[in-house]
Amino acid sequence: MKAQVKAQVKAQGTANAQRQFDPVAGHPTPQVAFADVTLDLGGKTIIENLSLGVQPAEFLCIVGASGCGKTTALRLAAGLYQPTRGKVTFDGQPMREPRREIAIVFQDYGKALLPWRTAAGNVSLALEAGGMPAAERPARIEELLRTVGLPGHAGKYPAEMSGGMQQRLQIARCLAQEPKTLLMDEPFGALDAMTRQGLQDEVLSLVAASGVTVIFVTHDLDEAIYLGDRVIGLLPHPGRIGIELPVNLPRPRDQLSTREHPEFLRLRRQLFDFIKATEQ
């Protein structure tokens, strides 16, 4: 597994470098855009006047104190919520309902997988929804499970897998949608530190290989800087943008050298101060 990822990373070294996102000379039309979005839920304003554009192939991380509406913002992008005012668009078209080009990885993998289907069956669900003929599915399932590092686990039920494996499985199902945009809601929040770092690197290489756009919500500042092309910090009550930081760290990134990079430490300091200020 490890060797395979390394090989992939090497092969995509150049692609990775190109992926380096430049917000100034960015793509003219964003893939996912929030235009002055406000959301009221149960008489409370959760998100207020949020404007945001995510360019194709960008890796955007959203951080913020708990209750700042970062998960809600992600659900708006997924089409699971409709804004009270303003507009959410995907490729220029307004989002009225969820679409198959947008996949969402939920934090609570235990609830988002079908416990009565095996790993292969869970991946198959997305293929079935996409109308892939039954005969073509097994090969695709095997390929996807290999991509996320679960070869040989096709016949296992989610309950027989560790948390990290279940989250890999959920990612595989999302990849089966062949999404243009991948929304990730604190996907590694419930995992231990070692598993988490391994999955971070795997997500980076997967994203580099497929060129998918990612919006990644996390409360872990290091994770946000390590993964993202850009980090947005939200202010709570109601949720709105408080800080926006481009991350100019070289790719491919490395758990040791990237985290020791002076730029990483500077961004970390800046974000840390921001979050601390919002909590007071």
Binding site: P98, D108, K111, L125
Partner: peptide, 18 residues
């Protein structure tokens, strides 16, 4: 039924019957 699964179904745009 776990509400999260209905959300998964929505984001996969599954039909009501499915």
């Amino acid at each position: 039924v776990e509400p999260r699964l209905y959300e998964v179904a929505r984001s996969l745009q599954m039909s009501k019957l499915a």
